[in-house]
Every structure is written in C-alpha cells, then in structure tokens.
Write a protein that binds this DNA or RNA. Sequence first.
DNA 1: CGGCATCCGAGTAGATACTG
DNA 2: CAGTATCTACTCGGATGCCG
Lengths: 139, 139
Amino acid sequence: MKTITDNQKVRAAKKLKKMFGQMDRRQMEYCPIRDVMALASDKWSILIILYLGYYPVLRFNQLQKKVYGISNKVLSERLKILESDGYLSRKMYAEVPIRVEYQLTDFGHSYLDKLIDLTEWITTYSDDVIANRAKYQRQ
Amino acid sequence: MKTITDNQKVRAAKKLKKMFGQMDRRQMEYCPIRDVMALASDKWSILIILYLGYYPVLRFNQLQKKVYGISNKVLSERLKILESDGYLSRKMYAEVPIRVEYQLTDFGHSYLDKLIDLTEWITTYSDDVIANRAKYQRQ
DNA sequence: CGGCATCCGAGTAGATACTG
DNA sequence: CAGTATCTACTCGGATGCCG
C-alpha cells in the first residue's frame, strides 16, 4: 500500500524546514502549536465543534445529548474555553425557562474545515490503525 | 475579518452530513474518530511525528533532546503506541552500546501531511486565539 | 544507550446534588 | 433550562534508580 509519494515527502520536509526554522528556543519551550492544539484537539472539543458544524445552532441540553457521554460539568467547561478562544459564540435569552444558544463563529468554521479534513483521513484509515494495533498486541 | 465564505460552510455541512449519516448509534458511543484522534492529537505524539518528519531518522536520546521537556517514561510510552498504530517503525541494532532508530512509516508520512496542514493553520491564527483569550479574561 | 519499574503529587473527569 | 458546587476516584506525568 503506497499511501504517499516521495515527492510529497520532499514537499513536507520543505514546509517543516520553514516551520522549524522560524522557531527559536523560547518558542520550543512555550510552543503555541502545543498550546492551541491542546485545546482544539481535545476529544470533547472536537465533537462539540463537529456537531455545531452539523447543527448550526444548539442549546446546552441538546449538545449534551449529541455529544454522547459528556457530563454537564465538562461540557460547560469546554464551552467556556471554546468561546474564550473564539471558536463559538454564546447567546443568552432571558426567557423563562432560560434559553442559551451556541453556534460556531467564522473562525470556528475555518477550524471546522481543518477538522473535517482530519476526520476524513481518520475514517479512511481508522480500520488499518485498529488492525495494526491488534496485530501488534498478538506479538 | 472574513475567514470563510458561505459557500465553504455549505460544502462543510454536506461532508458532515455524509459522515454523520454513516455513523450508527454504536459508532457514536465507540467512535473511532475519538479513538484514533485521541492518540494522534496528543501533544507529545504530534511533536514526535513532526520531528521525525524533519529529521528522517532519530535515536531515542536524540528524540528526547528535540522534544523539549518530555520524560523518558512518556517518550517510550508514546513511541510504543505510535509504533503499534503503524505511524513509525523501530529498528534495533545489537551493538554495544545498543542503538535504536525510529522513523516514520509511509502511513506516518501521510498523517504528517495532515498535521502540517493543521499546524500551518494554527501558526496563522494562534496569535488571534491568544488575543481573544486575553480579551475574554479581562471581561 | 535505551529503556523499564516504582513511587508520588497534581490535575481531571465523573457522579450527584443543588440553584438562579 | 443551564448551569455551579462539591466530593471522590482515577489517570497521568515527572523524578529517580536500576538494568541488559
């Protein structure tokens, strides 16, 4: 199975050279990539963003039902972080009972695009990964 | 700042519809995306893969120096997982002292490509995210 | 050199109960 | 409805020491 050409490898190496070249020592320690990625690639955050890409607007309890297995504590934490980083917006309506709606910002949508790329790649290869893992276990 | 067009949103929604449509209830609970992503998006694993994309072959101690701040315990754990999932290969040379070399598989390179896309996106917007976060704190 | 075994501390997630 | 508060359980990372 040839998943990638040598040509692609060369191109990847060039991009990496550019990226790593720009980083100085301080950045290696602080590393914004790690910082931003740590949040955005959190398993719950990913699902939240994907669902908000699928359903344009969702309320708190709706989200909790969609994102299977998440607790209200963790959900509210993640929503607060995702809002503070600019991925989604929170609108509160002072009705009785209260209504709060979440939706992606334009920035969130631009991240969603990247996320979709990644999940497409994953759904293509996840079976291979699982199979590989099982084979490795048996040894 | 218009980071995304309505047209792109529509295309994203279509892809999501296809993805979510294929998932049945069991998959929502088990969720291979979450499973594969959880590993591949681990902050240490990402750096390991990026460095192995930059330096084609690295030994254990070399990796530990590159991946700033990682402990040998965590490094060896991550390497074992990444190997078992097929992202990288491990070659042992029975010399004295022993020599072990790690490098990406073709599969690992194909993931590296996705990762580079993502880090490029992040380096473009990480300043915005940090700024957003700071603004949110002040309120 | 390339790890593994062990211990320990901190952070995190989940369950539950409660409130504006 | 949309969370917060609290407590517990558990995982995870770091440090250290040792070994083939």
